[in-house]
């Protein structure tokens, strides 16, 4: 995963797989950034090929943490199997999901 800061928003780009083995690393990295004071995130899933329930939980658990801090976590560019897993888990109903990072950034409060 790589990250980039645009204005007040931290963009997190995920690649490859977010499953039982990799999800804890993502969650730990997100926790670190939150502890450093970051509260606005766009997590770009365009490069993600695979997500399991462990991956979903790591994103949800991060979003729950941010919600307590009045932060935001938007998602962008869900594709293929990742989109399908979000749909069957009804995560598309609880997250704000955008077609691109740019669209997600435009929806962030200024």
């Amino acid at each position: 995963m790589d990250t980039e800061k645009i204005g007040d928003v931290r963009i997190v780009r995920l690649q490859g797989r977010l499953g039982e083995v990799s999800a804890p690393q993502f969650e730990d990295r997100m926790k670190e950034m939150i502890e450093e004071g970051e509260v606005l995130f766009v997590v770009d899933l365009g490069g993600l090929e695979y997500i399991s329930s462990a991956g979903l939980r790591s994103i949800l658990s991060t979003a729950k943490e941010l919600k307590k801090l009045d932060g935001l976590l938007f998602l962008s560019d869900l594709r293929g199997p990742v989109k399908e897993v979000f749909e069957i888990s009804h995560f598309v109903d609880i997250f704000r999901i955008f077609g691109s990072v740019q669209e997600a950034l435009e929806a962030m409060p200024r």
Binding site: S53, R57, L60, S61, V85, I88, H90, D93, I94, F95
Partner: peptide, 17 residues
């Protein structure tokens, strides 16, 4: 399935998948 991040439980998704 809840319609709010705060209320959605973390467990039970694996078997559903």
């Amino acid at each position: 399935f809840e319609c709010d991040i705060g209320r959605q439980q973390l467990g039970g998704l694996g078997i559903h998948i």
